[in-house]
Write a protein that binds this DNA or RNA. Structure first.
Lengths: 218, 218
DNA sequence: TCACTTGTGTCATAGTTGTATCATACGATT
DNA sequence: AATCGTATGATACAACTATGACACAAGTGA
């Protein structure tokens, strides 16, 4: 799970980000001013990424950026619209990306993912819709709530997500998850699909393709 | 098979990419400068993805990007290390991803696959008239509306499209779709053809060739 | 033992497929 | 051109098959 520090003096924006990122499976901490941010960084150094507003009371974003640099934590600047000079300066100073306010949360998440990937901080995790699947811990989060899946359910889910939008033929799917030939004529696969559907409330995503198999759609 | 356009003035890099991507199953075309790339794009518009170096003689990557945009072909930028500004500008201009030189070919392939998937460019896709048939998801779209076909209908449609403008003899057609010898004298094949015609409104495209079979015409 | 996972059986239902029937279109023959 | 035999279109229906839903039993590990 990623640890994100949100540095933003506008509490409304900070909290919005906090909630949305939490939902997207990120652990977040908010700092409402530069000094506070510095303190938090000092105390807990294992952030994976910092979202940094430039206009901050007291210590501003640039100063903070200098402070963060030696920690080698990627930084995404949050800048007001039109403040071109800020952006350029930010990038020159070594920010990894910037996002212009007002922003869509989806965009933030996408940029964050890109930056994290670029920085090699990629963790083995898959996402689909509101679900995050961590391959290392074998945990599944849905809207930040852990969903307990059994082994087969988990493997099945991983396969479906890795092949999203591709029909998985019943026999092939069975053979991949169960690692043995499909003898047909039992309710095993269906039953597990049903269990997955139920636990995740994914009736609409896991489509059955009649006479062929299943497809995770979205 | 995917068609990739490699635009890169450093021939060593271009050829390396060419070879590696070829091995990975991509059809590649190289362009060593922007003008050449534009010509190739003009001539042959069915590329699935463009790998685009930014630093090019004459026409640079940005200009070319503007040129490519209306074609709706995804673009991955190739940028020199540290050229952060380039990256940002590229992404802002609508590139789908970028890769920093020097790169591992594996990384390039992974990014390409991701971009292609994101853009919904599935290799296994047939089109005819207003219909797109995705062989992976087994979905059929007509004017962006999904048409639900049964297994036989789908197989039949695929065969017809793959043999467009060629008469399919009834017995051959039957044997291909039903995978069993044609015993004649039943309405099975006709009925399925009718069902296809009806679902797609393709009375005018699926022609019957009296006493021979059917032909998808257009 | 208990709690949990996993596989299988049964039944109901829904969707698919093949065939029969009748109507219409085609083409050869006169 | 008229006629006739045959092929195909259209439709409805019956048979079939796959899947969902559920319950339960066997297996497994704490």
């Amino acid at each position: 799970m990623y640890n994100i520090l949100i540095v933003e003096d506008d509490e409304a924006i900070a909290n919005l980000l906090y909630v949305e990122l939490k939902d997207a499976g990120y652990d977040c901490t908010c700092a409402y001013d530069g000094k506070c941010a510095a303190d938090i960084l000092e105390e807990k150094m294992d952030f994976d990424l910092v979202l940094l507003d430039i206009m901050l009371p007291e210590i501003d974003g640039y100063e903070l950026l200098e402070y963060i640099k030696p920690m080698e934590i990627p930084v995404i600047f949050l800048t007001a619209k039109g403040a071109l000079k800020e952006r350029i300066q930010g990038l020159n100073m070594g920010a990894d990306d910037y996002i212009v306010k007002p922003f869509q949360t989806g965009e933030v998440i996408a940029r964050m993912a890109a930056v994290l990937r670029r920085c090699g901080k990629s963790i083995n995790q898959l996402t689909f819709s509101d679900v995050i699947v961590d391959l290392e811990s074998r945990k599944v989060l849905q809207n930040s709530l852990e969903i307990e899946l059994t082994m087969k359910e988990f493997d099945l889910l991983v396969d479906l997500i890795q092949n999203r939008n591709i029909v998985q033929q019943r026999d092939k799917l069975y053979e991949k998850v169960w690692k043995q030939p499909f003898m047909g004529d039992t309710r095993t696969l269906d039953t597990h699909i049903q269990r997955l559907r139920k636990k995740l409330g994914w009736e609409k995503y896991i489509k059955t393709v009649f006479r062929i198999g299943y497809r995770l759609e979205g």
